[in-house]
Design a protein around this nucleic acid. Structure first.
Length: 432
RNA sequence: GCGUAGGUAGCUUAAAUGGUGAAGCACCACGUUGCCAUCGUGGAGAUUGAGGGUUCGAAUCCCUCUCUACGCUCCA
């Protein structure tokens, strides 16, 4: 378990503009969260890092961005339509829940009492909607409950356009929607969330190699997020618990404030999905090796990342309370490439026009270079430092009287609170 | 969805058996302040989660809804 409470994280996120309750002015909407200025910056930094690590920096990866609304046949072929729309009944005594079409509803199979079931209700994890003006069975569509199918449905397109060597992968980032029974634990389980998913296509004989390859890449990812190894755990999902199409799954877990829980999952899904599409669509999903070898329907390794779960882990790992000059201080020790604000610029005193003017110059030049630079002349210099500590700004640049004489500034380090004098000309490369 | 506990200013908390809703921090303005939450003055900010009811009078009592936390349940 981590030593920070979920309450601390939620409070800081709201107070400092990271994450707010969705629809808050109207009393909220369960399972939805809105990102404020700092939150969206952190989120984008994380997603961009992922894209760079797993698409741009690799030779065997292709990116896609599929539509959220998909032909309902996608969800029929994948099994979601069937498995997400069961009629359920609940026992009013023991609260056991059962498929109304699978049991004798006159008696509860769990507690044995009679007449405890009410009317069966459709329990549908997929958000249903109608596409087009006519609302009938043919126009039904769903908000995707996972992004993976958008990759599978484009597998053939990517092969036809690029004819990549096997193995190769397709990556996608995007929203997914699930009507969770009980959203819980801040952004950990919500009804609208963001996934980053990869389907890595291999010949069946190669799946174990690919599994290890991605297992290592996942650990590189954790390292890039600055997550300490002792807060991360691999859970080898027991054979009995595996989905019927999976031969092996590892849940990567993190020590969240609410307990040890999944941060991402990695599954060997065999050729279940492409096989389903081939059957349902009648299109040939076979890959023809360039060397003239036998054609085959590729198997896949699927590393599936949750953005919000990564954000939460990053915040939890970064959240630190220490003591500085006899005062308690809260800081986020975010990796600097993830920090929402790269650096803050301040005049030592805001009522000295010559300091303010010089500081504005420095601010403008840094802003031009990094973009995410914050101007702060509120209160006194100590308060500004503490405020920046709390949002994880790695550096604070202060323009003082010596700056006016020799064009040097002080750069104050978030973690050590140490200050060093740096020539303005050296500032850009120093902060990069 | 079920059970339990809650929701008071941006945050943290006060408000005796129903009787004008406060404070600290944060925020804004002015002054002060030569390097780690200075000090002073002034200001703004709350139909007490929403809606209804009881009452002369409701943050407080009742009902409905909503949101959050915890336990079940659920969980590609």
């Amino acid at each position: 378990m981590s030593n920070v409470s979920l309450e601390d994280i939620v409070s800081l996120c709201k107070r400092r503009g990271f994450i707010y309750q969705g629809s808050e002015v109207y009393g909220g909407l369960a399972g939805t969260w809105d990102y404020g200025p700092l939150g969206v910056a952190l989120k984008r930094n994380i997603m961009q890092l992922w894209w760079k690590m797993f698409v741009d920096d690799l030779d065997d990866m292709y990116g896609v961005d599929a539509a959220i609304l998909m032909n309902q046949k996608v969800w029929q072929a994948s099994g979601h339509t069937e498995t997400f729309t069961d009629p359920l009944v609940e026992c009013s005594n023991c609260h056991g829940r059962f498929r109304a079409d699978k049991i004798d509803t006159s008696k509860c199979p769990a507690c044995g009492l009679k007449g405890t079931f009410g009317e069966p209700r459709q329990f549908n994890m997929m958000f249903k909607t109608y596409v087009g003006p006519v609302q009938d069975d043919n126009s039904i569509s769903y908000l995707r409950p996972e992004t993976a199918q958008g990759i599978f449905t484009n597998y053939k397109n990517v092969v036809d356009s690029f004819y990549p060597d096997m193995p190769f992968g397709i990556a996608q980032q995007g929203k997914a929607f699930r009507n969770e029974i009980s959203p819980r634990d801040f952004v950990f389980r919500s009804r609208e969330f963001e996934q980053m998913e990869i389907e890595y296509f291999v010949h069946q004989d190669q799946w174990e190699n690919a599994f290890e390859l991605w297992r290592n890449r996942v650990h590189d990812w954790f390292k890039a997020l600055g997550l300490p190894a002792d807060m991360l755990h691999e859970l080898e999902v027991p054979k009995d618990d595996l989905a019927h199409y999976s031969k092996r799954t590892i849940d990567f877990e993190f020590d969240y404030p609410h307990g040890r829980d999944e941060i991402l999952g990695m599954a060997y899904r065999t050729n279940f999905d492409l096989g389903n599409i081939q059957r349902a669509s009648g299109k040939n999903m076979e890959y023809r090796p360039k060397d003239g070898g036998e054609a085959f329907v590729p198997h896949v390794i699927e590393p599936s990342f949750g953005v919000e779960r990564a954000i939460m882990a990053v915040l939890v790992a970064a959240y630190t309370v220490d003591e500085l000059h006899g005062e308690k201080r809260t800081l986020l020790k975010l990796p600097k490439h993830l920090a929402p604000v790269r650096c803050a610029v301040s005049p030592l005193l805001k009522n000295k026009p010559e300091l303010v003017e010089k500081a504005k110059e420095v601010y403008a030049s840094l802003k031009k270079e990094f973009g995410n630079v914050m101007w702060d002349d509120n209160g006194n210099i100590g308060k500004r430092y503490r405020r920046q500590d709390e949002i994880g700004t790695p550096y604070c640049v202060t323009i003082d009287f010596q700056t006016l004489e020799d064009n040097t500034v002080t750069v104050r380090d978030r973690d050590t609170a140490e200050q060093t004098r740096v020539a303005i000309a050296e500032l850009l490369p120093g902060l990069a």
